[in-house]
Amino acid sequence: MTLNQSKRMWIMLDIGIVAAVGLGLLMLWLARDPLPPQPTPTPVPPTPTQESVVAARVGETTITYTAWVKAFLVDRVMSEFAGQPPPSAEETLQRMINETLVRRASSPPPPDAATVEAKIAELEATWGVGEEAVVDRLAAVGLSREALERAVRRLLRVQSGMNALSQQGVNVDQWLQEERQATTIWIAEGLPVPEVWVDPAAQPPSSTAPPAPTATPAPTATPTEEPAALAPAFTLQRARGGTFTLDAQSLERPLVLVFFQRRG
């Protein structure tokens, strides 16, 4: 059970089967849906251009449309290199939901850049392809290498989260099922899944008509049951010590939340 579980994950991720088989298996494991099947998204031609479109909510956490589509396209590229059948967009979303639950439960630290790079190098070695081929293939679906880095970073993080749970004696399989039952999970319906990612931010502002059909008005992407845009909850470290939490309890007054472009 627990030991086997954790062992299986480690074997898949660390013996390089990862690349060929393991990654696909881990993805499938994470994509398994213990709940009754969710309604399959019906393809809708127009593309949502709003960055704020939400694909799913897992409790208080939001999975954006952008994150979902990018993850799906990366999954497809990786599966292709690994010679595995690609996951469906629905499977990718289910996996992201499960990953969110794992991350939420164990808050594993993000791996550093060197670890991510080492894993990518390992994957490329197992796939038998060079860096250039990977970048080219990603570019063909409209993604940069950063999307792969992000996917690998997320995967390593989830892996260490699952490992932490296993070490606590948790049966991850069973835990995941229970967690899904106990969590409010909302999935948007009818969001289109493009073959190639076109960054809305990079599109020319309305002057030239994009090749995508524009005759139909863009969907509001807010099915009736979606709650009003709820600010995602978070806890972050403050620069001058301590933490800052935004959740249902912590907000007594309105908050002006600013995102700075600065990096560090």
């Binding site: 939001t62 954006t64 907000l251 007594e252 939340l257 995102f259």
Partner: peptide
């Protein structure tokens, strides 16, 4: 968090995109 608010890397610079959210006491944007 930048990703949760869908403002990460929109300008392809590995940073949060400049953004301001007003969140009311009921946590609605």
């Amino acid at each position: 968090v930048a990703e949760a608010y869908a403002v990460y890397n929109l300008l392809d610079d590995g940073a949060a995109t400049p953004a301001v959210f007003i969140i009311d006491a009921e946590r609605r944007i």
